[in-house]
Amino acid sequence: MSHAAAVEGDVPLGRVVKDGLWDSNVVFVQMLGMCPTMAVTSSATNGLGMGLATMAVLIVANAVIASLRHWVSPAVRIPIFIVLIAGMVTLVDLSLNAWLHDLYKVLGIYIALIVANCAVLGRAEAFASRQPVLASAVDGAAMGFGFTIALTMMGGIREVFGAGTLFANAHLLLGSHFAFLEMKILPETASTLFMILPPGGFLTLGFLIAARRRIQGWLDARSAAHESLPPGSAAAH
């Protein structure tokens, strides 16, 4: 365990990051936040924007809740958590409306619905209310980044096969600095409208969950094989 992890609590920060990105990924493992996952991932740009907005809420909400955990009565903790999360979502909503208005119009009501995202309240209850500020902020960043990766991957796959593009209109929705992301992958004649419709979202999610489980199974088998080797063997090193 690193010194930073030892200072911040019983949970190593490296483990917190691994949980957020892979072992307890919000979409591919916990299967939370399915409403925005299905609704906004018709393009990689929308998925990236929604993921970053949610990550910002997770980081700040986790940090604030962790800093107040000793002063919040267990009897009223859930209403207080919801009020705090709603405040963070309001700030994100107003910020997007002011500085990224095009993205704000695309995401619409789903920004406000971050308040009802089980992943945000779940991390507040399961982690931030029990851990110090730094560990909680790292947990929010890891969970949020894992959520962002999942939404961007889903949006990218659906956009490529549904429209033939990748990160289309990124310069309009995310700002001019993201124009380099825009790519044309397939000709229009090769695109399939089905992929950017709701059934395409469920199909894409199913394949990604299956791929993640297949990779995890391979990693588990490799780890088990490594542990079964004699301690002095060359492969064990």
Rank of each mutant, 00 (worst) to 15 (best):
M1I: 08
S2E: 12
A4M: 04
A4T: 13
E8I: 00
L13H: 06
G14F: 03
G14A: 03
G14V: 03
R15F: 02
R15P: 01
V17P: 01
V17H: 06
L21I: 12
W22G: 04
S24C: 07
N25L: 04
N25R: 04
V27Y: 02
F28C: 04
L32R: 04
L32T: 11
A39S: 15
A39E: 14
A39W: 09
T41P: 00
A44P: 00
N46T: 10
G47L: 02
G49I: 01
M50V: 07
M50W: 04
L52D: 12
A53H: 07
T54A: 11
T54M: 06
T54E: 10
M55A: 11
N62E: 09
L68W: 13
R69L: 01
R69A: 05
H70P: 01
W71P: 00
V72E: 14
V72D: 15
P74Y: 03
P74D: 08
A75K: 12
R77Q: 15
P79A: 05
F81G: 05
G87N: 05
V89K: 00
T90I: 01
V92I: 12
V92S: 01
L94F: 10
N97G: 14
N97M: 10
A98K: 09
L100Q: 13
L100D: 08
H101V: 00
D102V: 02
D102R: 01
L107H: 10
G108M: 08
I109D: 11
V120T: 13
R123I: 05
R123S: 15
A124H: 10
A126D: 15
S129A: 14
R130N: 10
V133Q: 09
S136N: 11
V138T: 05
V138D: 09
G140P: 01
A142H: 03
T148A: 14
T148P: 04
A150R: 04
M154K: 05
G155L: 00
G156Y: 03
E159V: 06
V160Y: 00
F161E: 12
F161L: 15
G164D: 14
G164Y: 03
T165W: 04
H171W: 01
L173G: 03
G175Y: 04
S176D: 15
S176W: 02
H177Q: 12
A179I: 02
L186P: 06
T189G: 10
T189F: 06
T192I: 09
M195P: 03
I196Q: 13
L197T: 13
P198A: 06
G200T: 09
G201L: 07
G201I: 05
F202S: 15
G206C: 08
G206A: 10
A210L: 14
A211C: 08
R212F: 07
R212A: 10
Q216M: 11
W218H: 12
A221V: 05
A221N: 12
R222V: 06
R222E: 15
A225M: 11
H226C: 07
S228F: 02
P230A: 04
G232F: 02
A235F: 12
